[in-house]
Amino acid sequence: MRNLLIFISKYNAFFLFIIFEFISIFILVNYNSFQKATYIESSNNVTGTVYDKMSQISGYLSLGKVNDSLATENARLHNLLKSSFYVDTLVKRKVVDSIYKQQYTYIMAKVINNSVNHRNNYLTINKGSKDGIAKGMSVICSAGVVGVVVNTSEHLANIQSVLHKETRISAMLADTRDIGNFLWGDNLDPHAGLLVDVANNVKPRKGELVVTSNLSSIYPAGIPIGKISSLQSKDGGLFLNMDVALAVDYSKLEYVYVINNRLATEQTQVEAARKKDD
């Protein structure tokens, strides 16, 4: 017993190393997965407050640009208003509005923490479960897709950015409506992504818009992702792959919209019932 104690105290550095390394890896494996909520994250109170203060300061520096982008978006929304259309036929008046039930509602939030140069990037926004934000909701901005909510606290929420190695969005070419999958490439370029698994008979052209497809369970259809920047031609492949220049500049995100899909619970119930049948 005494010899054992002497042995341990002689090589104490090694044993301490083993202990602390074990704790670190344990934390890494347990709290880093996509589903598990974690306390050590930027949505907790201490780091969240610090980030909030810093974003207030840095927010002043970009007021001009934010104003411009909000003005353009206002103009775009004004264009969609009923009052800005001239009704030229009587037929249009017969459309009864109440046949539509609103499926998506939008919650505005400000980005208080952001990163683009890691393998897996996350954002923090200043709205949380108190404002109706829940895990799994999708997030967009005026230019295109942003990510998915992974974790919420009372006043803050954590978003997994599109710039993440787990990203896989069902996308389609806007003109021909051909379906593919959108991924973020492994060269960590925050301005580029990949569109893969497009059927071989499709003839995509450079500069064509890529949007979210109507198969996507998270995003509403038609949200812009980016434009095709180049075609990677591989001989004999079953599918086409192409590079996509992203529509959103993720390093300059200021305001985002969290989308609440009001039919989401219904959809998951239906799909759960199907799984039970299988």
Partner: peptide, 18 residues
């Protein structure tokens, strides 16, 4: 805590200390 990567830097720093 600030990088949203629980345990990653802690593991690397522990190795660094050793």
């Amino acid at each position: 805590a600030f990088y949203d990567t629980p345990g990653l830097h802690a593991a690397a720093c522990t190795l660094l200390a050793f």
